[in-house]
Design a protein around this nucleic acid. Structure first.
Lengths: 193, 193
DNA sequence: TGTCGCACTTAATCTACATTAAGTTTCTGT
DNA sequence: ACAGAAACTTAATGTAGATTAAGTGCGACA
């Protein structure tokens, strides 16, 4: 289990001392998920906070026809959780699974909360992380509200230049909110890029 | 200027002592906005964090045809900000204006940051507030992805039972992501509620 | 106290994107 | 190395919701 990515991501915002780092690391768990394996299934409680170290996870919701709608990709360095379920203990509405073989670190809820109480700098980090997440959600919401499918695709390419190369097209379609058929047509009809 | 709503909303999550409360209050400013007045205009920098005490604000983005898309309503007790602009100092993509005459408290960015550094309990409050906001954004995103317009309307009625009575229908239409014409037709065609 | 603007309605027409279906290609597991 | 399953494509048809346009009712301000 390699914590360096997590620690360096924390170090961008706060400076933990040796003891704090060791304490943090002592609460950390590591797991692997093979391609297509679930990290969280809709209906279960999201009782972990997950940080991806290798590979890629995705979160998605399923509509009444069974169609999947991707909300987020989490390549290495990203956090992922069903936040409502985490906070309230209600069953999750999101599924989280692995797009490719993935390694991830996680905190159990009780440990994460304790860490916030005992290490104020960690709480600061999480306050800042929360603000950044809000900024990201607001922008996604604006983009979805004011842009047509083609522009959302262009946005996606800019936002995830690395993912666009490795991700199956149908995952991208699901993220930008169109069917794979429509995305295919769009890309082969219009002169793009 | 009345801080009681803000203080009681903080008190739900952390217990500030007298000195901390006084310090917080000393950094607080109060303003009124008349109906239709801007609190933030697209292109300006969102350098305040706003907490509504009376009336109602809204945030919205404008598409290339000039159509407004409401992202959030902020009745009393709610916070509102263009978070990316607040964090980075970039120009805001959101407009924030008053739906009716509104009173609001706000922190300047420098004061808000200082308060977080000096009062760890305030930072805890903001960490929790951030988590709650993320939960809300995730749910809105799921709803938009998997529900049709009529279901989004029903959701809205459940989520904002007070607003649905006072808000002009066109604002509701803009929030749920349809035209006023289509919402009107939907409500008068289908047997609702 | 009237009128001007704005919220709301109705209805015809239009369009971005969905659905269905069938065929081709490219992975993936054994 | 091969079989089956995915991913991708193409194209015909379908539909939720947009656009345009015209008209009604009401609340605010001169």
């Amino acid at each position: 289990m390699d914590h360096s990515l997590l620690l360096s991501s924390i170090a961008k915002h706060v400076t933990l001392d040796k003891a704090e780092e060791e304490y943090l690391v002592s609460l950390l768990h590591y797991k692997k998920a093979r391609r297509k394996q679930f990290v969280l299934e809709e209906g279960d409680v999201s009782s972990k906070i997950v940080f991806v170290t290798s590979g890629c996870l995705r979160s998605y919701a399923v509509d009444k026809n069974g169609t999947e709608h991707v909300l987020q990709f989490a390549p290495s360095g990203w956090w992922i959780v069903d936040m409502r379920s985490y906070i309230t203990g209600e069953p999750a509405r999101l599924n989280i699974d692995a797009i490719e073989d993935t390694g991830y670190l996680f905190f159990h809820k009780a440990d994460f909360e304790e860490l916030n109480l005992k290490v104020p700098k960690f709480e600061r980090f999480n306050r800042i992380l929360g603000q950044n997440a809000i900024a990201t959600y607001q922008h996604r919401q604006i983009d979805n509200a004011i842009f047509a499918a083609m522009e959302r695709y262009a946005n996606f390419c800019q936002l995830y230049p690395s993912l666009i190369k490795t991700l199956p097209q149908k995952q991208v379609a699901s993220y930008i909110g169109v069917t794979p058929e429509f995305l295919s047509k769009m890309l082969n009809t219009q002169i793009v890029k």
